[in-house]
Design a protein around this nucleic acid. Structure first.
Lengths: 113, 113
DNA sequence: CAAGGATCCTTGCATTGCAAGGAATGGCGA
DNA sequence: TCGCCATTCCTTGCAATGCAAGGATCCTTG
C-alpha cells in the first residue's frame, strides 16, 4: 500500500530535484531531508525512497558526502551539492515551471489551448 | 533514449489525469489526444504511452468507448469520461494544486518552509 | 549485558513512460 | 488488380523510481 495513493506517482522524478534544491543552503543528512519533506504535507517520503535516491545521486556525482560524528548516536552521512548538482537543479527548475504551467492550463481551461 | 530527458519522469502519474481532463469536453480518439498533448510543448507523448494508458483507464472504468467509422481510413475508438472518471479528475485536481504549491515553494524559497 | 533509539543501507516489487514492432482499413497510382 | 502508403490501433519488453520490509551499526541508559 502506497503512502498516499494518487500523489505517489506525482512524486516520481520530482523528489530527486527537491532534495537537491534543499541541499543548496547547507549540507544535510538523510533523516533531516526526510523530516523536512514530511513537514510539507504533499511530499511525504519514506526511508526506502530517500536512501536509494541519495546513493544514486552520489554515484552520479550530483552530491558529495562526508561523515560527521554526533554527540550521541550513530554517525551521519552529510550530503552537499556538487557543481554538476547545482547545474541540474537550475535546469530542472526551468523545466518544472514550464511543465507546471502546461498542467495548470489543462486543469484550469480544460483542453483548450 | 527518452523523448525528453528530465521531463520523462515528471510526466509519470500526471498524463493519465491530463488525458481524463481533456475528455471532459467531448469524446476523443487516441491519435487526437496525442496531437493535443504535443501541441503543448511540455507534454509530448508517444503512442506507446497513450494506448496502454487508455486501455488501463478503460479496464478501470474511468472511460467508456465506442467505435466510429471514418470517411477514409481505419475506424477510431472514441473515449469518453465515465462518472467515476469525472470524480477521479476532480480529486486529482485538488491534489495537483497542493502538490504544485509545495514544489514551487521549494524552488522559489529554497528549503525554508 | 540487554534494550532501545537513531542512523544508514539493501532487496524485491509495482507502476508507468517509452521504443520498437506489427496488424487492419481504405485510398491511390501503376 | 496489385502494391504502396497513411492512419489507426495494439502488444511486448525494458527502464526508472517510489515503496515496504528487513536488517546492520553505533551509542546511551538501566
Amino acid at each position: 500500500m502506497p503512502i498516499d495513493g494518487l500523489a505517489t506517482q506525482l512524486r516520481k522524478g520530482v523528489i530527486e530535484y527537491c532534495v537537491l534544491a534543499m541541499l543548496k543552503e547547507m549540507p544535510r543528512y538523510g533523516g533531516e531531508v526526510i523530516q523536512m519533506l514530511r513537514a510539507r504535507g504533499e511530499l511525504v517520503v519514506s526511508e526506502g525512497t530517500i536512501y536509494p535516491l541519495l546513493s544514486r545521486m552520489r554515484s552520479e556525482g550530483l552530491v558529495e558526502t562526508e561523515w560527521r560524528d554526533t554527540p550521541g548516536g550513530a554517525p551521519r552521512r552529510y550530503y552537499r551539492l556538487s557543481r554538476s548538482g547545482q547545474k541540474a537543479v537550475a535546469q530542472f527548475r526551468d523545466e518544472w515551471f514550464r511543465f507546471r504551467d502546461s498542467v495548470d492550463n489543462i486543469f484550469r481551461n480544460g483542453a483548450r489551448q
